[in-house]
Computed example of a mutant assay.
Amino acid sequence: MANPRVFISFDFDHNVTQKHLFVGQSKNSKTPFSIEDWSSKSSLPQDQWESLIKTKIGKCNMLIVLCGKTMASATGVSKEIAMAKEKDVPVFGVYVDGANTTSNLPSGLQRNRTIAWDWDKIAAAIDQLMGEGKNK
Rank of each mutant, 00 (worst) to 15 (best):
Ile57Phe: 01
Trp119Gly: 07
Leu129Arg: 09
Asn104Gly: 08
Glu36Pro: 01
Leu129Cys: 12
Pro4Met: 00
Gln18Leu: 02
Ile35Val: 15
Trp117Leu: 13
Gly76Phe: 04
Leu21Gln: 11
Asp37Ile: 06
Ser40Met: 02
Phe10Gln: 04
Gly98Thr: 08
Val94Trp: 04
Ile115Thr: 14
Lys87Leu: 13
Ala74Met: 01
Lys41Glu: 11
Cys67Ala: 15
Asn112Thr: 14
Trp119Thr: 06
Ile8Cys: 02
Lys30Leu: 11
Leu63Phe: 03
Leu63Cys: 09
Ser78His: 02
Lys121Met: 12
Lys136Glu: 12
Leu129Asp: 10
Gln128Val: 03
Ser39Glu: 15
Pro90Tyr: 00
Lys87Gln: 15
Thr31Lys: 02
Ala124Trp: 03
Val65Tyr: 03
Thr31Cys: 15
Asn15Tyr: 00
Val94Leu: 06
Gly58Ser: 11
Phe12Cys: 00
Lys69Trp: 01
Gly98Asn: 08
Ser9Gln: 05
Val77Phe: 00
Lys54Tyr: 05
Ser42Arg: 12
Lys121Asn: 13
Ile57Asp: 04
Asn28Glu: 13
Lys41Tyr: 06
Ile126Ser: 06
Asp118Ile: 08
Gly93Asp: 09
Ala99Leu: 06
Ile126Glu: 08
Glu36Val: 11
Met62Lys: 06
Ser51Gln: 14
Cys67Arg: 04
Pro90Ala: 00
Phe10Glu: 03
Gly133Trp: 03
Leu52Ser: 11
Met1Lys: 13
